[in-house]
């Protein structure tokens, strides 16, 4: 699914050079539920941004399903993202003026799809993430956990090949965070969607099938503890 070769990302801040990722080699198979762990500043976000095609590497390549997307033009990358990727963010990033259902529908509005299918998909995903009855609420009237459920549904509703989640539980209490992780794992199983998420929370790491640990921009550990079936 994902093949990363010799990936380097360096930030230039004034005279300083921050080597956020140093020669990363990594392969992630279809259907994996993989966590990227590591202390703050170790390069997790940078890696996820690069896999998500919203940032460009200084060296190396990332192949997703056989294509090197970051080599393309901005518009091609955008098109690739809308068709293949789903994002979940630490701060939920819902549109406050839209209801839960409208927020989820936003990602479908980018795809050509008959209205009936659109409705069916919305109903199904709302049911799956456990938001039935709350479709018409705006984010302000939802708890943090519920908001992140909306965000997960928004990422999943278009049936992407890959979902990327940067610290999806960092803004949630541990119980709610665990529930979100369980939800993501269920969806990973039922939709056969590949999940890559970052965290520095041991509880979240425990729930991952694979734990990739970064330190100072290098992979220091890659633990295939529970292979996804």
């Amino acid at each position: 699914m994902i093949t990363i070769t010799n990936l380097v990302r360096t930030y230039q801040t004034g005279d300083n050079e921050v080597r956020a990722l140093r020669n990363i080699d990594l392969a992630i198979a279809t259907g994996e539920f993989a966590a990227i762990a590591g202390p703050s500043g170790s390069g997790k976000t940078t890696l996820l941004n690069l896999i998500g095609c919203i940032d460009e590497p200084d060296e190396g390549t990332i192949e997703i399903n056989g294509s090197v997307v970051h080599a393309g033009k901005a518009k091609e990358r955008a098109l690739f993202r809308r068709e293949n990727l789903g994002f979940v963010f630490q701060s939920f990033n819902l549109v406050p003026v839209l209801t839960a259902e409208e927020n989820i529908a936003l990602s479908l509005s980018l795809l050509d799809m008959p209205a009936a299918e659109r409705r069916e998909r919305l109903r199904a995903i709302i049911d799956e993430v456990g938001l039935t009855g709350m479709e018409d609420r705006r984010p302000a009237r939802l708890s943090g956990g519920q908001q992140q459920r909306v965000a997960v549904a928004r990422a999943l509703v278009k049936d992407p090949k890959l979902v990327l989640a940067d610290e999806p539980t960092a803004n949630l209490d541990s119980e709610t965070g665990a529930a979100i992780l369980d939800l993501m794992h269920e969806l990973n199983q039922s939709h056969k969607t590949t999940f890559v998420f970052s965290t520095h929370d041991p509880m979240v790491m425990d729930r991952a099938d694979r734990l990739i640990t970064l330190r100072d921009g290098r992979i220091v550990d890659d633990d295939l503890r529970r292979r996804a079936s």
Partner: peptide, 14 residues
Amino acid sequence: RREIGMMRAMGLYD
């Protein structure tokens, strides 16, 4: 800012 970033990440064209 973040909302616009989210939409661009999601695949909206500029």
